[in-house]
Design a protein around this nucleic acid. Structure first.
Length: 262
DNA sequence: ATGGCTAACATGGTTAGA
């Protein structure tokens, strides 16, 4: 891997405070140099900035009490940070954007949606429509753009361990997939699918019922890239190793590498 | 069968995740 490659990661840590040891262990071997986190579950005043700095990362964060929370971390400076979706008065801390080495990066924690037809499902679809409008504007301003995060949508049945059991459920429903397709229709590419991948590769496994042992998972953590950036993508993979460790997050990190000199 | 884990906030039991 080129020394000046941009290696972009995303990880729903399900509480940054609990997962700091996992982050440290992962960064000891992972080549990632820009990282979007979700579900930090900490207010900005309590963000473990010192520990993060000790791991060689700076950046910005946007959190709230108990729920949600995102952070955009990098070994290089993060410029022009924007928190939330401008013009959308969302009280939930789910989006942070910044520019690293000329690449615009948006880190998102898409609402879960709870159940098809619920109020939270309606919020999820509204939220995704707002995200699409935001991303359209950002793409016009930044040719090199990536959106990383926990999308809480499995794009295709190939991303679902048991498509029959999951059919029509939240995370795979037609309306959610249509909302994701509308985002992709801006020209974004799910870079994971640019490369040959192992069968049954997922990024989330329920804590219950031995789901990870059975590989009963979903691929819901994605890295989307604009055409000008995707052309430089040299690889994308799910790193399931941290999911095997003691007291893991239920999500694995996903990483994509870009050779910006090419 | 709506269970099964985990985390936050709290300190028993609810809310939420996906």
């Amino acid at each position: 891997m080129s020394r000046d490659a941009l290696v972009l990661g995303t990880w729903n840590v399900n509480s940054l405070r609990v997962r700091l040891p996992h982050l440290e262990q992962w960064l000891a071997t992972s080549p990632v140099n820009v990282l979007g986190l979700q579900e930090t579950k900490t207010v900005d005043g309590d963000f473990p900035a010192g520990e993060i700095a000790r791991l060689g990362l700076g950046g910005e964060w946007h959190g709230q009490r108990t729920y949600n929370g995102v952070a955009l971390l990098a070994r290089d400076p993060v410029a022009d940070v924007v928190k939330g979706i401008p013009g959308y008065g969302d009280e939930q801390a789910r989006v942070i954007a910044g520019t690293v080495r000329g690449v615009r990066i948006i880190d998102v924690y898409v609402p879960n949606g709870q159940a098809v037809g619920s109020d939270k499902y309606g919020y999820k679809l509204e939220w995704l429509a707002r995200l699409r409008d935001y991303v359209a504007a950002e793409m016009a301003a930044h040719p090199r753009l990536a959106i990383v995060g926990d999308y809480n949508i499995a794009p295709d049945d190939a991303d679902v361990h048991d498509p029959v059991a999951w059919a029509g459920q939240v995370l795979v429903s037609d309306a959610e997939r249509s909302a994701l397709a509308a985002l992709l229709s801006l020209g974004l590419d799910d870079v994971f699918r640019r490369f040959q991948q192992p069968e049954k590769t997922y990024s989330w496994w329920d804590y219950r019922g031995g789901s990870f042992r059975r590989n009963a998972g979903l691929r819901i953590d994605l890295i989307l890239a604009s055409p000008a950036l995707a052309a430089h993508c040299t690889g994308c993979w799910v790193d399931a190793e941290p999911r095997r460790w003691e007291r893991p997050s239920d999500h694995a990190p996903v990483v994509a590498a870009f050779d910006l000199t090419a």
